[in-house]
Amino acid sequence: MPTEERITAEAAIDRYADMVYRLALSQMKNTIDADDLFQEVFVRLVSHIRDMESWEHVKAWLIRVTINCAKKHYGLYWNKNVDFLEEPGRVADGCGGPELPEEHPVWAAVQKLSPKYRLVIHLYYYEEKTVAEIARLTGQKETTVKSQMHRAREMLKDLIQEQY
């Protein structure tokens, strides 16, 4: 029986880098902020690593902290009032080069939604979390999450139909 990998911050990066990066990118308006958020989350993990009891615990913690740090970022005046010239989502393939958003129409459509709708869509569609889990992670009521999901789906459908 293989022994489970020791829980360290570096091991967590190897395991969950893509998960955190995708969530950060779905929340931030540009890749620069997504990179900063990514780094901040894992540096914070260092001081909490001793409390982690399992990899599932680490995963849940990373999702929650990424969401909270993204919210904190949005509260800053600078980010509410400054527009960026860069496209909101840079899609990177395995070789590190960007791909055109046109090849990722659903991702591009999701990026046009507001942050809270992007969040519920990402957690529901990609992380496959239940409404109850999303409510816990975002600190909202389940009815609010359901309402957000419904509205997000409607808006997403319209956006995708516009593209085609």
């Binding site: 911050a9 990066i13 880098a17 779905s26 990179d35 990514f38 894992f42 540096v43 991702w107 869509i121």
Partner: peptide
């Protein structure tokens, strides 16, 4: 969405810098 998001990966350079920051911490 799952397929397109699955094609997004954390840049290698970012991972390297983050590991360095983690070791410093």
């Amino acid at each position: 969405y799952q397929k397109e998001t699955g094609q997004i990966h954390a840049p290698a350079d970012l991972i390297r810098r983050t590991k360095k920051a983690v070791r410093t911490e």
